[in-house]
Simulated assay, not measured.
Amino acid sequence: MFVRSLSLGVAAVALLSSGAMAADLIIPTTPQPIYESAGFSWDGLYAGVEAGGVFADDVAGVSNSRGLVGAVVGVNFTVADPIVLGVELQGDYLFENDNVGDAGLFLALGHVGAVVTDQVLVYAAGGFGAITQNGDSSGVYALGAGVDFAVTDNVSIRGEILGLGNFDDNNNDFFDAAKATVGVFYHF
């Protein structure tokens, strides 16, 4: 009788404890990642618009200061951790000033930049292009710098200033004008 009651007691304890364990099931969870994304990516294709002005002494027949609006398309490549290289095409419409007619400014630029923080890119730019006015076209070169600020995951704003000079400069000034712009860009 004692063995039988002991067997029933052990069986009861085994049944009750297994029911208690069933309530405490361990559900596997995935751990949180240790690495988080680095923030804004400056790599890849981008396009946008810019507005500003050209402040000219005389560059390719454009004299005095003029307002401008334009479009920009470019691509960036990160070659080392903070270093970014890029190429860019700019096409700007220069508004008429002093009844000399509207003009167009077209530039092909190369960029060398450094990512200061995840949201800030500082760069130097240089290139060449042309100014067209009244059916005439003249070659120009450009050197300058700018800074881009990321405002969302795909949108950045920019401030840029470029010195513009004539290839056929008779007065031997290195820069004959300055182009100052602000822009908004979408990064694909």
Results as ranks from 00 to 15, higher is better:
G67M: 07
V120R: 08
S63L: 07
V54L: 12
G144Y: 01
N172Y: 13
D168W: 08
Q119E: 14
G127K: 01
A114T: 14
I131D: 04
L68Q: 06
A108G: 14
G101R: 05
D57V: 03
L105E: 09
G74A: 08
F128N: 08
R66N: 02
F174I: 03
N154P: 06
A71M: 11
I131P: 05
I83Q: 09
A51C: 10
S156F: 05
D136T: 13
T132M: 04
G127T: 03
G61I: 06
A108R: 05
D176P: 05
A108Y: 08
A108E: 10
V79H: 03
L94F: 04
D148M: 12
H111R: 15
N64F: 13
P82C: 05
Q90T: 14
A103R: 03
D148L: 12
L105T: 07
L107R: 01
G113T: 00
D57G: 12
V112S: 11
A124G: 14
V62C: 05
L68H: 02
I83V: 13
E96W: 09
D58W: 05
V147T: 10
V112I: 11
A114G: 15
D57T: 12
V73K: 02
V87P: 10
I157K: 06
G129E: 02
D118Y: 09
D92W: 04
A51V: 13
L109W: 00
G159W: 04
S65R: 08
A145D: 10
V54F: 02
A130D: 04
D148F: 11
A60P: 08
V120S: 01
L143M: 08
A71T: 11
F106H: 14
L121C: 01
V116N: 10
N172Q: 15
G52Y: 03
D176G: 10
V87Y: 13
A108V: 11
D168T: 06
A56K: 08
A150W: 07
N154H: 15
N97V: 15
G67D: 07
L121F: 01
F174P: 05
V115T: 15
G67A: 09
S63F: 12
V73G: 09
E88R: 00
L164A: 05
G101P: 05
G163T: 02
G61W: 00
V155F: 15
A124R: 07
G86Q: 03
Q133V: 03
V87M: 14
L68D: 01
T117E: 03
D102P: 00
Y93L: 12
N64W: 11
I83T: 09
T152E: 04
D169C: 11
V73S: 04
N97R: 15
F174T: 08
V116I: 14
F128E: 00
N76H: 06
N76K: 04
A51S: 13
I131G: 06
G165W: 00
D148W: 11
D136W: 00
F167M: 01
F95G: 13
D58E: 11
